[in-house]
Design a binder for these strands. Structure first.
Lengths: 251, 251
DNA sequence: CGGGTCATTGAACCATATCAAGTCCTGTGG
DNA sequence: CCACAGGACTTGATATGGTTCAATGACCCG
């Protein structure tokens, strides 16, 4: 993960729209020089997708890249017979799209209502070339995603259903609150909302919806989580959930 | 994947040692400007590891990065109780190491005898800053690895044991021969050697050694592969193996 | 109230794990 | 040349976690 130090910089007036941007800290546009930011700003246009809408599809040539401003995006890949796997779940301030590729190699779909800050593909790639700072940020973010993907490979290959579900809840606890409130990382309890249907969770964890449902029920009976309406989850003791998730040795 | 166009450039004398390097095409040092290449060349020193030797370990701060010149490297992560998952299998001309990180987030071990072309970490990162070309190449390679990791997530989460083993063999067929002979991609049959023990294959595929063994036997009985001594595999009809591997929709 | 989607629960089944021999290969020493 | 020891792999029998199939329940919206 990256240290953000642009917070100190006061943006000039014409970058007002970036000042309060949810992707301001941690996005590709964070911690780059002002010229680059200004150029990006000129390129940007916002777009909104409703839950379930396709953002781009596999094998389609990228025509734009984007920062996620709000909501959650599923990246999925499927086998010829329809089996699906979610290969990435993205939240603000993640970057969306595969630079320098013939195609995004996967399918992106809004899991909830999603707001994006979009850049036309060609122009963005030109900026990457012009501003090494920007390319550096993209590299950092790509490396972080690679780390996350590998962490998930451990989950998919070696964890039990219970550990998978617990890990998924831990991920949400971390991702959906870090942005909102970096300080509350210290809290020992937490509340958040699951932005996915059971079918999506199953596709993310390499399980079936029935197994996901059973494991959630099981965690509830154990007192590790409490559930409310509309996918609300309360975790009284994060450490207990963490333990149920099984830890990777390094961490 | 990237197009290599440096082939046309004739290297000056003092870069002789790079001229015949197995990482010359496709490595981080491919397709960068001559100054950058010369700087890398000055930094580089070769190192050899025997099969089974640890190259670096998780949580250790990176002190060098490297190109793989020959052999195969396993990147593994494990859970606290010892369950293991191989999260990356690297061949020439792959890049080894996590730039800009507090730690490599995984454990690297030589799967076979391995030759590396190593760069001291600090100096290499300084070059990344100095030569955007080089950083660009690293970004491209990182993006390719992310694609590969996601492809593998589909395998881990959604493929059957038979498909997993067939996919693994396809991977070897592609990786161990592409470098050696780009042209033979067109052949319909192929021979290669499995550079891993059953235990490693199992850790790569999220299976047990017994299951791996049974599936290999099964593929042999079906006539999809023939096996010789020392892990040699002959695939009479690549398309048949490809079919057994299950295809991801886009491909 | 009725029809749809989504989630939960139960029962039976099956793919893969687990446990336990056995076999093959290779190198070593007599 | 044979005996044999150890590791890697294979094969078999059994167990089980997770899937599959089927029914039911909860909620929403018109």
């Amino acid at each position: 993960m990256n240290v953000h130090d642009t917070g100190r910089v006061i943006l000039p007036d014409f970058l007002k729209s970036c000042e309060r941007c949810p992707a301001r800290f941690g996005g590709v546009c964070d911690n780059i020089d002002l010229d680059a930011l200004a150029a990006l700003n000129r390129l940007a246009h916002h777009r909104t997708y409703e839950a379930g809408q396709v953002i781009f599809s596999e094998s389609e040539q990228p025509d734009f890249f984007a920062n996620i401003l709000s909501g959650a995006v599923k990246l999925t890949k499927s086998l010829a017979d329809g089996r699906q796997q979610i290969v990435g779940l993205q939240f603000p301030p993640d970057f969306l799209g595969r630079a320098f590729g013939q195609s995004h190699a996967c399918f992106a779909e809004a899991a909830t209502r999603v707001e994006l800050c979009c850049y036309p593909a060609d122009a963005f790639q030109a900026l990457l070339q012009k501003y090494p700072d920007l390319e550096h940020r993209l590299l950092e973010k790509t490396l972080d995603e690679l780390d996350a993907a590998r962490e998930w490979m451990v989950l998919l290959g070696r964890k039990t259903a219970r550990e998978k579900v617990a890990s998924f809840l831990m991920l949400l606890a971390r991702r959906t609150n870090k942005a909102a409130c970096p300080a509350c990382a210290e809290e020992s309890s937490i509340t958040f909302t699951i932005p996915l249907k059971r079918a999506d969770i199953a596709d993310y964890l390499g399980l079936t919806i029935e197994t996901v449902s059973r494991q959630i029920t099981h965690l509830r009976h154990e007192g590790i989580i409490e559930t409310g309406a509309a996918g609300e989850v309360f975790v009284p003791d994060i450490a207990a959930l963490q333990a149920a998730a099984g830890q990777t040795e390094g961490a």
